[in-house]
Write a protein that binds this DNA or RNA. Structure first.
Lengths: 224, 224
DNA sequence: GACAGCTATATTGTCGACAACTGAGGCTGA
DNA sequence: TCAGCCTCAGTTGTCGACAATATAGCTGTC
């Protein structure tokens, strides 16, 4: 695993194929629930079956595909229950991440995070929904990295976040939750700056809980 | 991944090799920090390099080995900091597992769990330190499975628990924490039986925190 | 018509060989 | 002496072919 300190750089052919496949799955180019044929993919991506196999195995580690011996691999299918379970794990892990960030982040990192939030303020004020996607992701990334916990970083950034993005993209999230989420982010940073571990964890957990409820509501009423 | 509902059954050759390699690493037969040569392992385990490669990749997903492109894989090395980080994640995940177990476990499952605890009582009373290893593992397994959350189950049972066992085995844990841990288990089951999610989570988190402190102390004073 | 068993086909699992890369050691030239 | 380059052995990455397995469809019997 790339350990994700910064941007993951593909070096081998299997890496590139893995990233490409992951992208195509997350963005729905390969339909959720569809079967992944090794031979077909090897011709489509113009690599040998061995590298396709390795890529699929890695995707299985991220829980983006499910593999059965002697049968094959299928892209996971998205379900309300799956989403809920995903957010339950996020709540636990990111709560802990916020706690550890309050303990372990350097002062400069916190200042930089504060700067990020401030820059968001302008965009929120202008009503740019740009926020939800890039801004939200960036915010959560920084806190997870700030935890300085390798397991946390790996499970979330290399694993769950791609699934989260898959749900967001394929269910078409954009949402009017922008300004409210902005305030929540602001409060979390404040708690971290005060080195208040307990509060940072609680606020982060509530933030994710709200976010789950929001997406869940969208999931019931197909709006797009 | 095997999804771990019950016992994971090897079907393919890569499965068997993966299990064997994992066992040998966890139990220290392959030294922590040592390099894993694909060619050497393929002769030692009498399989082709391809299945060794797949096994190593899976081990990397469990964080039991670290792989670098074009260089090779090394068994992770155990460190005090690594142990602490591991238990931080356990605290977050198993806390959530206990909460969800209080919500989702069937009445019969809870009764069975209660039975397990009761059976432990006799052994603890007799001073059998058998408890710590098998009993403790079994207890935590049941609660994680009781959460009915696939991600939680996979990350913990297919992943972190093997690392936990690796620390325990290679640092020689047995400890006088038996009776105290027993009481903590008892209280957790009580909270779950009462469907008290909040309390179940808090108790589990404290239980793991205590456990971490215990191992940490042992790690400072090499007793065995 | 339904069902069990068999056959055929397509897919996955496994293998050995070749290509590409890394790291160590020695060599050259200042 | 030392920095930098180069060579070379050994390792990992990639490939195409073969073996083993599962699924679909057919056949024959009840």
């Amino acid at each position: 695993m790339a350990m994700s300190l910064g941007i993951e750089q593909p070096v081998t052919n299997a890496d590139k194929t893995f990233f490409q496949l992951r992208k195509d799955i997350v963005e729905g180019l390969i339909a959720s629930g569809s079967k992944l044929s090794e031979t077909e993919l090897s011709t489509r991506y113009e690599v040998s079956r061995a590298v396709i196999r390795e890529a699929i195995n890695r995707l299985a580690s991220c829980h983006l595909v499910e593999r059965r011996a002697n049968v094959g691999a299928r892209v996971v299918d998205l379900s309300p229950d799956g989403l809920i379970q995903l957010y339950q794990v996020r709540e636990a892990l990111e709560g802990m991440a916020a706690r550890l960030a309050a303990r372990n982040m350097q002062d400069e990192e916190i200042a930089s995070l504060q700067g990020l939030i401030d820059s968001h303020f302008n965009k929120v004020k202008d009503g740019q929904s740009y926020y939800q996607e890039a801004g939200d992701v960036d915010f959560h990334y920084r806190i997870v990295l700030g935890s300085k916990n390798a397991h946390l970083i790996s499970v979330l950034i290399d694993g769950l976040y791609h699934l989260v993005r898959m749900y967001r993209v394929q269910l078409g999230m954009a949402g009017p939750r922008v300004t409210r989420a902005y305030d929540e982010h602001r409060n979390i940073v404040h708690a971290i700056a005060n080195r208040d571990e307990e509060l940072a964890e609680i606020l982060m957990r509530r933030h994710i809980l709200y976010s789950k409820n929001n997406i869940e509501a969208k999931l019931r009423s197909p709006s797009p």
